[in-house]
Amino acid sequence: MKNNPVFRVAAKILFAPIILFGLYVQFHGDFGPGGGFQAGVIIAAAFILHGLVFGLDQGRRLVSARVNLWVMAIGVLIYGGVGVVSLFQGGLFLDYNALTGSVVSGQHIGIILVELGVGVTVTSVMLALFHAFAGFVEDHS
């Protein structure tokens, strides 16, 4: 698909809007349908589209396997970190009210951070799965 101009142009045009939509789903999850899981999958889809059209090597240059592995762990650490911070603020583990001391702002901040952690992990895991499956075939054939 690398040499087909239609695929290349379409992928270039679609890449940014897909990520923008993913970010909308990520941060609008409090008010409408969506959240970290869906947003993570959508953002990963943008990178997978890029990898499908421009080849796996270009995709790996965009997000290297090493970086991706760290990002996977960082998402879980963001989630767990929110819990630990609320512990140090004097609350229970993952007690968002303790983050700021008020129910409304604490819950909003806590939920947004936690969903961010979910989104980051899901994005990088989906991308890693795609690179692992597609890359295994390419490397071993």
Binding site: G83, L94, V118, T121, V125, A128, F133
Partner: peptide, 19 residues
């Protein structure tokens, strides 16, 4: 939190097997 860890572990497992 558990689900996120499950996703993370699954990703690690596939990477260990394939990558």
């Amino acid at each position: 939190l558990g689900e996120t860890i499950v996703v993370f572990t699954a990703g690690l497992g596939v990477l260990m097997l394939l990558a």
